[in-house]
Simulated scan of single mutants.
Amino acid sequence: MRISARTQYALGAILALAASDGPVPAERIAESQDIPRRFCDNILLQLRRAGLIHSQCGPDGGYWLARPPAEIALADVVRVTEGAEQATRPFPKAAAPLAELWARMRRQEDALLSEITLADVVASGGRPLQERL
């Protein structure tokens, strides 16, 4: 499984929101997660359009989760940033059995990322999520 920098940044940004108690300005998210500011703004816009976060302008504004952290799975964020899984080109002849293997691998990835929530990651306090693996 390959995870893009966009997805890594999006996961960092949304986890920063999951760990906060109120609206967080984009600047603070970008700084705390080492995300280039313009890139952070684009990611936050993408997450907002997907309905995962809300935003408010003004001195008391910022970004916050649209649902409790226990109701947002890592897979939700990955689907927003990576898009829908594209069909791979068919495997020819001797490699044909790999098609089912690839499909199983994708289902396993999705199942794992779907069962781990933002709340699980925040509660781990930086410890590995071994009980889920």
Rank of each mutant, 00 (worst) to 15 (best):
P59N: 08
E31T: 12
T88E: 11
W102Y: 08
Q33F: 02
A26V: 15
E85K: 09
G22T: 06
L44W: 03
A119R: 10
Q8E: 12
L112G: 02
R28E: 07
K93M: 13
G51V: 13
R104W: 08
S20V: 04
V77S: 03
R48W: 06
A5K: 13
P59Y: 08
A73W: 06
W102H: 09
Q33D: 00
L112V: 12
M105P: 01
R38Q: 14
G126I: 06
G51T: 07
T117M: 06
A111F: 08
D110N: 11
L113N: 02
D110I: 09
T7V: 01
S4W: 00
T88M: 13
L112I: 11
K93T: 10
Q8Y: 00
K93P: 08
D41W: 09
I43Y: 00
S4L: 03
E31A: 14
L129Y: 00
R28Y: 03
I43A: 01
R104Y: 10
F39N: 14
E27V: 10
A26C: 13
C57E: 12
F39R: 12
Q8C: 14
R132V: 09
R107S: 12
A123T: 07
L101A: 12
A26P: 05
G61E: 09
R89F: 08
P97R: 00
Q56A: 15
L15P: 03
R79Y: 06
A73Y: 05
P128Q: 04
L112K: 05
K93D: 15
T81M: 15
G61P: 09
R37P: 09
R2C: 00
L11A: 02
A94C: 11
L118K: 11
Q56T: 10
P59V: 13
E27L: 14
P90R: 10
G83H: 04
C40P: 03
R79S: 13
L129K: 03
Y63V: 01
L52R: 04
G51I: 12
P25N: 07
Q46M: 12
S55Y: 07
T88L: 15
E109A: 10
L98A: 11
V77Y: 04
E100Q: 15
G62E: 05
I116R: 08
E85A: 14
A103Q: 12
Y63H: 13
S20Y: 00
R49C: 12
G12E: 13
L118C: 05
R104H: 10
L129E: 06
N42P: 06
Q108Y: 06
A66V: 06
R79C: 11
A95G: 02
R38M: 15
G83I: 04
T7E: 03
L45S: 11
Y63W: 13
P36H: 13
A13P: 00
R106F: 04
A103R: 13
G12Y: 07
R132G: 04
I35N: 02
A123N: 13
E131A: 13
D120R: 03
N42V: 07
A103P: 01
R38P: 06
